[in-house]
Design a protein around this nucleic acid. Structure first.
Length: 476
RNA sequence: CGGGGUGUAGCGCAGCCCGGUUAGCGCGCCUGCUUUGGGAGCAGGAAGUCGAGAGUUCGAAUCUCUCCACCCCGACCA
């Protein structure tokens, strides 16, 4: 049936690329490692942006924009930060036909340019907090790229906040982590584990990195959003101080948090099937497509009239499209909209017209039902919500069914390869054991769950006492 | 950076080993007719610096050399 799409069971990464191609989401550009996000893909990003932007504003944030170029010296001010990012920076050395006095780094992230600016904005506790987000592109010169998951240039949002107290900054870090969790669950329909990264995996320059981790259908983990508690690291590097209520001078506390076009990769790999893309209704650029089926000119006239009547009050309620192109036959259209992941399809032909009904088809399950044309809007709206929650539940069942506790190191190494999945293991917290673990298996410690129940046990590597289990898995 | 692979019409490929008329095929595209409840059929048509450069030759998509680009698999990362 799905011509041109490799089955997941045959070659998962081939399938992933085929789905992107079939749904016309993006393509490789002529620039190595970069992609062209095509209208269908960009429409998904716009919907993601719209929801997140709303959620950011509801939590008190405002948008602003900082420069793409960062003086090289800025990046060097925070030791860990420069060490982490220097290898993957693109640098502009010439401009205007001349060599620049100081090279300009194309932002891999904006902490440094933003904190050099915040220094000018902050004198007093009355200037705090600053709660700014920016929608931007960033560049990280990766060795190996994959559409959406890792590209040289990518789109994201980065929040950068400044606070008077540590407590407030920590609270902000966790608040935004929760915004991401909520977005993932309610919009992406993707269940996520939340937690904190090990020191090795944390953001260069952060005190703590929190993240949401989702499970893809191949049981690998994908980090879908991160929220960093930066402590006073950047304030110290850029000498950003403020006077508190008691006239005492202190460094400002910071957070940053980001979510990128990578989540489109997560969306694809969480829900899509061998017939192509499956989009959760709440993020779907087109929720319903109506396909008229006709034999004669008379048929199509009648159908068009009826469809116009039917859809008159859909405007503003449903994102829909009527596909009455006559150069394609119905089967072709069914397939095309299926590949693109439109959640609900309505088929309507002469027979339906006679019986005052339509055929309603769910993309996620393929289920077809004939329903009355009366009360159709509400029926569709209910169905969309049903699909949304069914998609979430299926993803959650899959994840839960593939998350296991494991206490034996040798067993773990085997099970990570086959059958794969997320494993909850005891870890003593030492970098040595983390290294040992990562060197001997292809998996990494994904998160140390923040809401994880305390449970005493023994480190799976060294046997030393451990207070809680951490999540390990192979990852993207 | 290592390993593997590919560059020929918009896309996917054959032709190359063994040089020789006007470089083929499938899909797509354009025109017309017939079709239309799960990827339509027939007829006609348009479309190519054969990745780039140099060389060998009477003659190069084909042989030689150099370069370039991209994809896939590994080491780094959201």
């Amino acid at each position: 049936m799905a011509k041109g799409i490799t089955k997941r069971s045959i070659d998962y990464s081939r399938w992933y690329l085929d789905v992107i191609d079939a749904a016309d989401l993006a393509e490789h550009s002529s620039v190595k490692g970069c992609m062209v996000i095509k209208p269908n893909g960009y429409a998904l990003w716009e919907n993601i942006q719209a929801q997140l932007d709303r959620m950011f504003k509801e939590t008190g944030h405002v948008n602003a924009y900082f420069p793409l170029f960062i003086p090289e010296s800025y990046l060097k001010k925070e030791a860990e930060h420069v060490e982490g990012f220097a290898p993957e920076c693109a640098v502009v050395t010439h401009a205007g036909g001349k060599k620049l006095e100081e090279p300009l780094v194309i932002r891999p992230t904006s902490e440094t340019i933003i904190w050099s600016t915040y220094k000018k904005w902050i004198q007093s506790y009355r200037d705090l907090p600053i709660l700014i987000n920016q929608w931007a592109n960033v560049v990280r010169w990766e060795m190996r790229t994959r559409l959406f998951l890792r590209t040289t240039e990518f789109l994201w949002q980065e929040g950068h906040t400044a606070h008077a107290t540590r407590e407030e900054a920590v609270e902000e870090t966790l608040r935004m982590l929760d915004v991401y969790r909520q977005f993932a669950e309610e919009y992406l329909a993707a269940p996520v584990y939340i937690g904190v990264k090990s020191d090795q995996e944390k953001f260069a320059g952060a005190v703590n990195t929190y993240c949401i981790e989702a499970m893809m259908q191949d049981k690998k983990a994908l980090q879908a959003g991160t929220s960093h508690f930066l402590g006073q690291n950047f304030a110290k590097a850029f000498d950003v101080t403020f006077q508190d209520e008691n006239s005492k001078l202190d460094y400002v506390w910071a957070t940053s948090w980001g979510l990128s076009t990578r989540v489109i990769g997560a969306l694809i790999m969480t829900h899509s099937d061998d017939n192509g893309l499956v989009v959760p209704p709440r993020l779907a650029p087109v929720e319903v497509v109506v396909i008229p089926i006709w034999k004669t000119e008379e048929d199509i006239e009648k159908l068009k009239n009826r469809i116009n009547e039917l859809t008159e009050n859909w405007k503003g309620q449903l994102k829909f499209k009527v596909d009455d192109r006559d150069q394609y036959r119905p089967g072709y259209k069914f397939n095309e909209w299926e590949k693109r992941g439109v959640p609900v399809r309505i088929e309507m032909g002469p027979r339906d017209l006679e019986n005052n009904q339509v055929v309603l088809v769910r993309r996620d399950t393929g289920e077809k039902t004939s329903v009355s044309q009366d009360g159709l809007v509400d029926r569709i709206k209910n169905l969309l919500e049903q699909i949304q929650s069914d998609m979430y539940n299926r993803a959650k069942d899959f994840r839960d069914a593939n998350t296991f506790p494991e206490d034996d190191f040798e067993n773990l190494k085997k099970r990570i390869e086959d059958p794969g999945g997320f494993f909850r293991v005891h870890w003593c917290g030492s970098p040595e054991c983390e290294n040992k673990f990562q060197d001997s298996s292809k998996a990494t410690i994904r998160v140390i769950p923040v809401d994880g129940k305390k449970e005493s046990g023994k480190c799976i590597v060294c046997g030393q006492p451990s207070e809680q289990r951490v999540l390990v898995a192979k990852s993207y």
